[in-house]
Design a protein around this nucleic acid. Structure first.
Lengths: 337, 337
DNA sequence: CCGATAATGTACAGCGCTAGAAAGATATTT
DNA sequence: AAATATCTTTCTAGCGCTGTACATTATCGG
């Protein structure tokens, strides 16, 4: 069980440590015969380089951290998957940090936890705001995701929420909806995402010459399908009439679908529904869910590009990038009414 | 941007490195005045210990790897979450490795990739079989999950699939079902999970004195909701009569729900449906889905216990543990028919 | 056949931190 | 006051690998 070290291989092969190291790294200028001999020693001993030691010597860890609120939220688990694959492609490994939207855990991400452990951090904050982050952003290269915070000096990637909400609203308008609701405004949401989406929704209505009816802006208590369900159920009970809903979240949309189903309304016949995030949930509901689709691969690639530039030494002001989006059209809000 | 080192703090505070280290580690025998002076220097310089160096010196990394087929499969993302939380509780950090069910990537998990990077690995294999793993299981402490492989020398945790399938079948029988189908057998499944579940299903029927009708064992082409849907739709089309379905997977169950809905059958009125894994999907379908619920926290805790014993030096034969399960009863198969 | 250039190989000083040995200070006991 | 016990702090040898500086051996045109 005693670990085999570089020097053990070197001794067995009768060469210097550096030569073994050269073989391990496929350094070109090693005589074929020697290379073979060293390789034989490596195989015989079952030598595996100690990555921690290599890291200390090189100063590079080859790891990046992804800090997200919840691993098992579909949006984030899908994002994680894309990032993991992009990382593999670029020769990095990913360590996932779950903040649970806890301010202390979020702060920990930026302060001591990652020191010397990773080359960089991609962080989707929920509770920390611009100034908090600006204050703590220290040595480790950092790229932010989402709408919660965007300090001037820190790189940042998000999608254009206003324009995406506009697209969703236009889609519903194009298919004939005239009384379009928005689900939902949330007291606990301090990320600003909802506001931007609400803005796009309003703009869409305006374009079509429709006045915003405050009754059509539904409020939910928390970010769950159940909360979405009760919000919509309550509106129906109040007698609010609507023929379309833009939801800020696929989970709300699922709740809305259920509420509509319970009240005997057909989707999309009576009410068309658009979700947000295009998680795989959208393909599993009945009817399947039309959903705003952030281009996750684009988002991840952009974030990684920025991060690698930081890792390479860029020290300038923060770059703020917009990743693309589209609308994944499914049964709940088809193209033709 | 130059990193602050332990020695920098030591110089500023006018003490030795060890004293600073003692302060950092809250070693008790440091005079209060000195401790304060050192702390001041640490704060002033913004010193953060370099974890890589610490690791090299101590030989412990404080990290474990979780190797799973797909991060964004609900079962695994939920498992990851539990593991991440358990790890935090025990003072470890988790690095997630996605194998994508690729034999080469799975092999890589056990061979060179983790050397010296993590203290241990928790691995849910899909393609590698018992002998492959036995052959490669080298130095790093390892615990296996799932039914695919269980080498004698390696620790292993799973749930009792036979008994869980039996419970599910009994549940359907108790609520009056007599023609219970099983969805689905899959050609590509080499993990053995399906067989065990099928066994429990058969046993349940036997207990009730019902002969297994081969027509009621549905086959699917792959692990997707769509495949489940077509499998059930086809059976309906063939005129197969059934009043209950045990699904090997929540996604199959979702497909079944859709197929039944499309054919105008009511759930649970005409057909009761039980899924498997009790992922959060189960709460989002309509009707909500009764599902076999592996006790994920128990599973994770058991795996971590075994792993920590290995890390602590246990070298004996593999321990094979069974984690508990229950049935999460929801609308698709309520208790009373 | 020689000096010059390129190809190979060796030696060894770190990377930043930990932890045990040893030394220096202070308190307690006889 | 000497002797012993108890704290407190310093010294320093690694942890395993990398990369630079340097030594040695081929290769080659003229």
């Amino acid at each position: 069980m005693a670990r085999i070290r570089l020097i053990d291989v070197a001794e067995l092969a009768g060469v210097s440590m550096k030569t073994v190291s050269n073989v391990v790294h496929s350094y070109p200028h090693v005589a074929p015969a020697l290379r073979e001999k060293v390789q034989a020693a490596i195989d015989q001993l079952g030598y595996r380089p100690n990555l921690t030691a290599r890291r200390l010597a090189t100063g590079k860890t080859g790891m990046i951290a992804l800090a997200i609120p919840e691993i098992d939220h579909p949006y984030f688990s899908e994002l994680s998957r894309h990032l993991a694959e992009e990382a593999t492609r670029r020769g990095y490994r990913v360590i996932i940090e779950q903040t649970l939207s806890d301010p202390d855990l979020e702060r920990a991400v930026l302060s001591d936890r990652e020191a010397g452990l990773v080359d960089g951090v991609i962080f989707h904050p929920v509770r920390m705001e611009t100034l908090d982050i600006a204050r703590l952003d220290a040595g480790t290269p950092l790229v932010l995701l989402g709408e919660a915070a965007m300090p001037v000096m820190t790189d940042h990637v998000m999608i254009d929420n206003v324009s995406a909400a506009l697209d969703a609203t236009r889609h519903l308008l194009a298919s004939g909806c005239r009384r379009i609701a928005f689900l939902g405004v949330i007291a606990a949401d301090i990320t600003g995402s909802t506001n931007q989406r609400l803005l796009g929704y309003q703009q869409g209505l305006l374009e079509a010459g429709i006045r915003l009816d405050p009754e059509l802006v539904f409020t939910a208590l928390e970010f769950t399908a159940e909360a979405g369900l009760s919000s919509v159920a309550e509106a129906i009970e109040r007698g609010v009439h609507f023929d379309g809903v833009v939801c800020r979240d696929d989970r709300f949309a699922i709740g809305a679908l259920k509420a509509l189903h319970n009240s005997g309304r057909s989707v999309p016949g009576d009410v068309a529904v658009v979700g947000w995030d295009n998680t795989f949930l959208a393909a599993y509901t009945s009817p399947t869910l039309t959903s705003v689709a952030p281009k996750k691969t684009e988002l991840v690639a952009a974030a990684f590009d920025l991060l690698e530039e930081r890792i390479a030494g860029y020290r300038g002001v923060g770059r703020h990038m917009i990743a693309g989006h589209s609308l994944a059209v499914r049964e709940s809000a088809p193209l033709t009414p």
